[in-house]
Design a protein around this nucleic acid. Structure first.
Lengths: 338, 338
DNA sequence: GACTTGAAAGACAGCGTTGTCACCTAACGT
DNA sequence: ACGTTAGGTGACAACGCTGTCTTTCAAGTC
């Protein structure tokens, strides 16, 4: 397993190793024909620079960190997918770390991670992107980072996000356009940032349409199936139940559908149900869920890409907003004729 | 950011760097008091060895690779979770790589990955664990690997798995014990290894109980919601429909439940439905799904752990079987009285 | 034609570890 | 008492790159 090193390439190309290094790192002051010779040797020998040596000698490491902490496995899976995708295109690699435990250990955790292996930047997925001790360390050590869908502290580093409020507004407007006037809303977990934004979008749409908001139609939830189930029971047992229910994530929407089914209400004929996220489950229920697609994979990919080529983002455009999409499937229809 | 190096530790402890290295790597021939001095200095200085230098100089890298290729995001998320868990306990780190594209590119992909960054071992999650070009490269380069739930080639390296057949048999036996005699079965994707095993377990249980197997009760599926939906339509429209349906994964089981609901059949009163995997979705339907819990996180954790401490597994015990669990929730009940 | 200049390329010293080998010392055998 | 041995320790050279500094060389300049 004597692997091919930069020396082999240099010999074959008839140049010094430093010149090979220059070519590989796209440094200036290399003549075109020299560059070609080197590139030729690289190709023939199928040379791949050794990461450890690069990291040790230079300032870059070609390693991108992904810090997460157990939200749903499928969310993590999607984030990872997007990040890996961005990395492999540029020869970077993804180092995944979980930042968990108590709040007061986060700082130390991150510090020792960074000490052990140098990374060129780190992608912070929720909820880690909102842990200030983590941001502190990263800022102190001047390690570039990009946050995915942060909940606050918008001045701390670049981030990628989507417009939750506008998405919720659009979805509500869609329900209104179908003819619904009595629309129930199931809120998310009170501590999650998206909860407020989505509710705000909902109320905004109602206001814009001149439809009064009945407080009884807004029920608390916690982003779980069970909480959606509970909220739907309250909503559908109201004297004048809503003709449509907008649950602020898919998990809860599925809970709502379950209640409707048990109450012999046909979805969408008797009651429309819509969700938010376009989680895998949205397609695993019948009827399939009309929902808002969150561009999770794209956000992760964009985040990693921003770390890899910071040049691509002109100053001032540090953060990126990605577009959501309204996915119309079968769970919403016009309200039953009164 | 002048970080603390082994030299600092050596100075503070009044020994040579080599001795520090010995202590850190638990090498023999270090006096107890010397070891204590070094450990003390390490603690005071909060020293963390630099990964890149270790990898470059030595034979170990403290990096574990995880090769995957897009099964469901939640599966990947769980595998990753388990692997990270095992890694962090021993100061290792997880490098995640996706092996995708065409069959004939796999070899090159893996080769160049390994060339770039040295890993101490790699965890192969399905379906990558069954791609022989990948195994070829790993074997040639003598890189330890552990496969998670491989579909075949059981002599190629150690693996972790669960007994799909026995699990399916137990689940079927459970259904029989409830009193069911007409049990439908929805097969998985024909190319997936688990498909055969699960079917075999199903038939074995029937045979053991002396219940004849009606071929019409075994329907093809593909591990997707839609395929479960289709299979259930065929099953429940039979002249003498089954009183219970065993779908060989949860996704399909949920499809079966959807059909039952649409046909005004109450689950589990009119028809029992059970699944396999204990995917997140199993708890996001009503009634919640009775299913077999696949120890995905544990398998990934065990796989990574086997790479990290190969000593722990005595020769001959190269592979590990992990226990499944029958998760009884609300979707199965005794059959309706004929 | 000698002199300046800047682009192109090379020499060489690290980077922070581990591997190898040499060295020292105390305990052992005879 | 003296070689022998093995445990304990240190010196120093890799490992494969990049950073810094130096050298070379061809093209201008007056």
């Amino acid at each position: 397993m004597t692997s091919i090193t930069i020396t082999d390439v240099a010999e074959r190309a008839g140049v010094s190793i430093k010149t090979v290094s220059r070519v590989l790192n796209s440094e200036p002051n290399v003549r075109e024909d020299t560059r070609a010779k080197v590139l030729g040797a690289v190709k023939v020998l199928n040379y791949r620079p050794n990461y450890a040596a690069r990291a040790l000698a230079g300032s870059r490491s070609y390693l991108i960190g992904l810090y997460y902490d157990n939200p749903s496995p499928s969310y993590v899976g999607e984030v990872q997918y997007g990040a890996v995708k961005a990395c492999r295109e540029t020869g970077h690699h993804l180092l995944v770390e979980q930042i968990d435990g108590e709040k007061d250990t986060w700082r130390t955790q991150v510090e020792s991670l960074l000490r052990q292996v140098k990374v060129d930047g780190v992608v912070l997925s929720p909820p880690v992107c909102d842990r200030s001790p983590v941001l502190d360390v990263l800022e102190e050590q001047k390690i570039p980072f990009v946050r995915i869908a942060p909940a606050g502290d918008w001045d701390r580093g670049p981030y990628v996000y989507m417009d939750d409020k506008r998405a919720a507004r659009d979805m509500t407007a869609y329900l209104l356009s179908l003819g619904h006037r009595r629309i129930g809303f199931v809120k998310g977990h009170p501590e999650h940032a998206a909860t407020q934004a989505r509710l705000a979008g909902f109320t905004q749409a109602l206001t814009e349409a001149g439809v009064p908001l009945d407080p009884a139609y807004v029920q608390g939830g916690a982003f779980t199936f069970r909480s959606g189930f509970g909220a739907a029971e309250r909503l559908l047992n109201l004297p004048l139940p809503p003709t449509a229910i907008f649950a602020s994530n898919d998990e809860m929407a599925v809970g709502v559908m379950a209640v409707a089914n048990r109450m012999q209400l046909n979805v969408p004929r008797d009651v429309s149900v819509v969700g938010f996220d376009d989680a895998p489950i949205a397609q695993s229920v019948w009827p399939q869920l009309t929902t808002v697609r969150q561009p999770v994979v794209e956000m992760a990919e964009a985040a990693a890409a921003m770390l890899i080529q910071p040049r691509a983002s002109p100053p001032g455009t540090r953060s990126r907003m990605l577009e959501f999409a309204l996915i119309v499937r079968g769970s919403a229809a016009p309200p039953p004729l009164a």
